[in-house]
Amino acid sequence: MGAITLENIVKSFGAVEVIRDVSLDIPEGELVVFVGPSGCGKSTLLRLISGLDQPTSGHILIDGKDVTRVSAADRGLAMVFQSYALYPHMSVRQNMAFGLENTRMPKAEIASRIEEAARMLEIGPLLDRRPGQLSGGQRQRVAIGRAIVREPTAFLLDEPLSNLDAELRGTMRAELAALHGRLGKTMIYVTHDQIEAMTMADRIVVLRAGVVEQVDTPLNLFNKPANRFVAGFIGAPRMNFIEAEDGRVMGVRPQHLRLADGGLAVTVDMAENLGAETLIHARTDKDQPILALLPGQLTPTRGENLSLVHDPADEHWFGADGLRL
């Protein structure tokens, strides 16, 4: 239970088409991450799946059943919002019970589900507090708990970690991945943070301007990006692109460059020392910007000439149309 299929989904707001003919198969139990720059349509796509918005055309199927015109409540999905959307005037327990009470579930069953979710998320001592009395991380757990108690067929998570500080985000990332392993339910996770996408996803859907650019596993996206956009978007620091004379473009990741004589001659603009490695900002004699992530603590001066080489196996070639060759 929990397989989701999108067939030729289009969503327009007035004259603006924000989702353009998106088709996607998400098998049961998979953790899929929608990633892309701001305004690419990833949250809109999640809202269409949730039922909070209706597609202009196309079909949404859950476990083979067309739910395109089915209300959000009847799709059997649970959503964790970016703002958590906890009811501020209710206790944590009441927040978690609210959705279940709508289904006229017996009180004992509600209590047992809440206890179980609270135990899983370690929020037992917080059950009688209100959201205003909780930290960001605790609120985040409560929001997930509210989704868990509904025992949905799939979880939809809209940038759930974006309001947390960097350290907590790292911890919660690992916890969410572990939770997915324990629950074994389908999860669709929206983020603009590619580290979240790379570390959590079974598969990543890269979106740009309402179009799916590539769907693949994190490592395949990194190793074999389908086009220049994906190559530039996935991986930090971003891939270098060097235009060849024949109109083709060669991409090489900053991590794959090293210092050696007889390579690409570049002039240093700036160096960022990250401790274990140094990120060098440089440019070629044709004024093309180049990033090189080199091991160790280097201190090149501005204007210094360096020679950078790479293994030909690390090259990515793209045609004039941007597609991988």
Binding site: S50, G51, L52, S71, A72, A73, D74, L77, A78, M79, F81, Q82, S83, Y84, A85, Y87, F98, G99, N102, T103, R146, R150
Partner: peptide, 18 residues
């Protein structure tokens, strides 16, 4: 009142009067 709260209620299948 944040719109998210109404959307969370909608996901939960809450009737308008409730």
């Amino acid at each position: 009142i944040p719109r998210d709260l109404y959307e969370a209620a909608e996901m939960d299948g809450t009737r308008p009067f409730r």
